[in-house]
Every structure is written in C-alpha cells, then in structure tokens.
C-alpha cells in the first residue's frame, strides 16, 4: 500500500516538474536543474549493466559446467565478454600503451564490426524472402501492393527510368514518367499514411503519459492486476 502511494506521489511530482519545465519559459529556472538529473540515470545504468553481466555469466557458465549441447558457444561468449571488458578497462588506465590499443582495436574494429556487418547484410536476403511472401497475389490488397512496389523500384533505378525516357520532361505527359510516378507515390500516399501513424502515435503517447503520470496505468509498477 505504502509502496504504491510512494510511487504514485513520486511519479506525479516528477511528471509535474517535466511538464512545467517544458511549458514554462527558460527564465523560470526549472531548466537549470536538468543537468543534475543526468548523473543519477548513469549511476542506475552502471548497476544495471553489472546485473546483466552477472546474469549472462551465470547462464553461460551453467551451460559450460553441465556440458549442455553447444556449451563451447557459451564458453566463447564468456571469454568475449570478459576479454572486451578487461581491454576497455586497460585502455582507460593505459591509453598510450601500444599493445593495449592494438589488441582493443583488433577485437573491436576487426572482429566486432565485421560481425555486426555480417548480421546486417542478412537483411538483404530477409527482405527478399519477406517481400516474396507479401507480394504473392492472393488478394486485391496484395496485388495493389505489388504494383506500387514495382513502380517505386523501377522509378528508383536508372534502368527502370529508361523505360519511360521517351516521354516529355515537361507537360502533362511527364507525369507518367516512372521517376515522377515514384515521386508521387512517395510524397503523397506514403507521406499521408506515415503522418497519419505519427499523429495517432502522438495522441497515444499523450494518453499513455497521462495514465502513467496520474498512476492510472496498472501492472507490476502499481501492485495491481493487468
């Protein structure tokens, strides 16, 4: 009970501060307190990151000790976590030591970044497989989507633009050039849909913020059933 009251009061007071900080002019002095709040978030963050490290270590160590299937992956994960952690700490204390900088760079620039890029590049294949499923002509909507995607893709590439290059660059007929059709699709229906979602999102954010601010939102935060 007391926990709920305490959280509600704290949430309301904090919300009130941020609301007035936003709507009041800078001269009110409320903005000057803002930099004081930043370090507190960092302190909580540092604690949380250690909790995460402990969780990962425990989970993977468990797999290694019990020799669960794929235990060697867990071992690699533990080594990677602690080697990078150690190298980052060493780099902070010995920023001019050559082997420390070199080892850190080797692991970060030549291992971590290429691995990131590898995963990112998978997107190209996934886009193709997802597009195949979405564009299969099963309904009127899928057909419209396929046609629109075709116009946008052709209008984007020079080879596609070459198809309608014989049309004049000015006048009414120029509207039918593929690059102009693509522009229209992107600027008019696409922008309208995106803005519609953004407007809706803005209203939703406002309603959700209000529910949180007034502690009307339920769940674990407030000891009540969802």
């Amino acid at each position: 009970m007391w926990r709920r009251i305490f959280i509600s009061i704290l949430t309301f007071v904090a919300g009130l501060y941020f609301f007035f900080e936003y709507v009041m002019p800078r001269e009110s002095g409320l903005t000057d307190i803002m930099p004081e709040i930043g370090p507190r978030v960092i302190i909580i963050g540092v604690t949380a990151i250690f909790l995460g490290m402990i969780n990962l270590t425990r989970m993977h160590l468990h797999k290694v000790v019990r020799r669960r299937p794929g235990w060697y992956n867990s071992l690699a994960c533990i080594i990677a976590i602690y080697v990078m952690f150690l190298l980052t700490v060493l780099q902070y204390f010995f920023p001019k030591t050559a082997w420390v900088i070199h080892t850190y760079d080797t692991f970060f620039q030549y291992v971590r970044i290429p691995l990131d890029a590898t995963i990112f590049s998978l997107l190209a294949y996934y886009i193709a497989s997802a597009a195949y499923r979405a564009f299969r002509i099963k309904s009127v909507e899928a057909t419209v989507m396929l046609a629109v995607a075709l116009f946008v893709m052709l209008g984007q590439i020079p080879m596609g633009q070459a198809i309608t290059r014989w049309l004049p660059e000015t006048g009414y007929l120029s509207w039918f050039r593929l690059e102009n059709i693509k522009l229209w699709i992107m600027d008019v229906p696409n922008s309208a849909a995106t803005r519609g979602i953004l407007f809706g999102g803005m209203i939703g954010t406002l309603a959700m913020s209000l529910r949180l601010w007034l502690s009307l939102e339920r769940g674990s935060f407030f000891d009540a059933e969802v």
Binding site: G196, I197, L198, G200, G201, I203, G204, T205, A207, M208, L210, R211, L216, E217, R218, G219, E225, V226
Partner: peptide, 20 residues
C-alpha cells in the same frame, strides 16, 4: 501506431483505462 499505446488499457478492460 497509437494502438500500441492502447494495449495496456485494452488488455486490462478497466473502465477508467478504456475511458482514456
């Protein structure tokens, strides 16, 4: 979009939340 922010209210079925 905004349906995401309606989730908790929708799932709870609580009158006050549905009002929002």
């Amino acid at each position: 979009g905004e349906e995401l922010f309606a989730t908790s209210a929708y799932l709870s079925r609580e009158p006050v939340m549905l009002g929002s």
